[in-house]
């Protein structure tokens, strides 16, 4: 694998065991600045588990995770959010009691300066900060075609739309690294193409580096510069989309016989 210049995310020798099972086995790769890196592999390969290790939900049993050159292996999830890690969840991690807009605003938690006392006393600057955030949220929602449902309860939306709300929430953090766990899940082919367009748009607009997990192979090859293939916790291939999709190992383990 080529050494990645100026990596936003570095995963070095990461292993994870849960309940005596080895879920991840000595995984190493990096995501360069401005790059879309895809993580693919069959069900149960450990893609979501790796997301959990990067966002701090799981603690790896070995290895090192760095964000923009800083070792974050020992940090809690909220501390990693402050370092610029944002993610979406494969099976949704929205806040059902909050509106679409409030969900988006929740993503900017670390960027707000208001704390208990200024909030309780309704300090004018804290109110102004909150209003500005609301306007910003509306812009991000518009960019994701969610403007019309800003006041809606998230639970009233279909699965695919909720996944887009999660992207909006993650964008509100202004992350250095955006991790998307199966964003195209549950979408029709036309919608998948449109989502690819949206993701490309936000990458350029917000200057993002993206780590993407997706089973929709067309979506992956269309978007990513770099693909890492996993199978049962191990990395079995890595490289450009073209190289990886023709790799016999990958075809055997994941893609199946070409039709």
């Amino acid at each position: 694998m080529d050494p990645v210049m100026d990596p936003v995310l570095e995963v070095q020798g990461v292993s994870l065991s849960l309940g005596g099972l080895t879920i991840l086995d000595d995984l190493s790769f990096a995501v360069g600045r401005g790059e879309v890196c895809a993580l693919i592999g069959p069900n149960g390969a450990g893609k979501t588990s790796l997301f959990n290790c990067v966002s701090g939900v799981y603690r790896p049993s070995a290895g090192r995770i760095s964000i923009a050159g800083h070792d974050v292996t020992g940090l809690k999830p909220h501390e990693r959010a402050r370092r610029g890690v944002a993610r979406t969840f494969q099976n949704l991690g929205l806040f059902p009691s909050l509106s679409v807009r409030a969900n988006a605003m929740a993503g900017a938690h670390t960027r707000l300066h208001a704390r208990l006392l200024p909030e309780m006393l309704a300090a004018p600057w804290a109110r102004a900060e909150e209003r500005a955030l609301q306007e910003e949220a509306d812009l991000v929602l518009d960019a994701l075609d969610l403007g019309a449902v800003a006041d809606t309860a998230v639970t009233a939306l279909p699965f695919g739309t909720q996944k887009r709300v999660e992207i909006a929430r993650a964008l509100m953090a202004r992350p250095a690294l955006l991790m998307l766990d199966e964003p195209a899940n549950g979408l029709s082919d036309g919608e998948v193409d449109e989502l690819a367009h949206v993701v490309r748009g936000i990458r350029d607009r917000y200057d993002l580096s993206i780590l993407l997990v997706e089973h929709h192979i067309g979506f992956v090859t269309g978007l990513s510069q770099h693909v890492v293939v996993m199978d049962v916790g191990r990395q079995i291939a890595a490289g450009t989309p073209a190289a990886v999709t023709t790799d016999p190992n990958v075809v055997r383990a994941y893609l199946g016989d070409p039709l």
Binding site: S55, A81, A86
Partner: peptide, 25 residues
């Protein structure tokens, strides 16, 4: 005042989904 700003949102977020709240910071 507290409930309608950053802290109120964080509290509701925690109640709804603690892991997701933590990953928002």
């Amino acid at each position: 005042n507290l409930a309608r700003g950053r802290t109120g949102r964080a509290l509701t977020a925690m109640r709804d989904n603690e892991v997701a709240a933590a990953t928002q910071g």
